[in-house]
């Protein structure tokens, strides 16, 4: 009986100590982590897409509810007006999800560009989707609401040599971006008025 109580006691104390420590640490690092995440993962991609904007898109962001999800949109201000937004979607790659940020010009629905953010693809093969600008540059100036596919599947995008599955994932993500854009456009426009100074 004594042993039993001791076992329960030790485990309880150990777990609560561990829980307390982690909770404190989590609170302490939360802000830093969120900032790091935006800065490192999406920052470079957003900067490339919204090149030449007058604001800091990571600061000027808003969230829109899409079904059960919340999506973040980053605003790019050109000539004093919030003309463009950038947001992230996901496609299925060779090894897990491939995150793609798509920038859209609100006036005509054309894409400013697409950039791959997070991926677990094979270095040197699938990772070219992120490193090789010639692949993602194919999306620039196309209409976002179109559907995209790689050429072997009868689509309109040249796949990366040796990484058809990754390329397909990117195309999937961009196609989905078009659907999200169609679905949420009224809400986005409403939100953007806040930035219209």
């Amino acid at each position: 009986m004594r042993e039993m109580i001791k076992m329960v006691l030790v485990l309880t104390i150990l777990s609560s100590f561990s829980g307390g420590l982690l909770a404190a640490l989590k609170n302490g690092t939360q802000e830093k982590i969120e900032y790091q995440e935006l800065q490192n993962v999406k920052g470079p991609a957003i900067e490339k897409i919204l090149e030449g904007c007058e604001n800091d898109p990571i600061v000027d962001r808003f969230k829109v509810a899409d079904g059960e999800q919340e999506r973040s949109f980053f605003v790019g201000i050109f000539d004093g007006k919030p003309k463009s937004i950038a947001f992230e979607t996901y496609g299925k790659g060779f090894a897990g999800k491939v995150g793609v940020i798509v920038g859209v010009n609100l006036e005509d629905g054309s894409m400013l560009g697409a950039q791959v953010t997070t991926h677990n693809e094979t270095p040197g093969v699938g990772s070219k989707a992120q490193d090789d600008p010639s692949f993602v540059s194919q999306f620039a100036n196309k209409t976002v609401t179109d559907s995209f596919g790689v050429k072997p599947d009868g689509g309109n995008i040249d796949a990366i040599a040796g990484a058809t599955i990754t390329s397909r994932g990117v195309c999937m993500a961009v196609t989905e971006a078009g659907e999200i854009y169609k679905r949420l456009k009224p809400e986005i426009v409403k939100q953007l008025e806040k930035f219209n100074k």
Binding site: L11, S18, L22, L25, T29, K32, I33, V41
Partner: peptide, 27 residues
Amino acid sequence: KVRIACFIIIIATFVTVVELLMQAYAY
């Protein structure tokens, strides 16, 4: 009798610490 469970709690705690620190400082 419960040493493995205790070890796992201890190890898991430190792993989470590493994970959080790494997320914050070596993203």
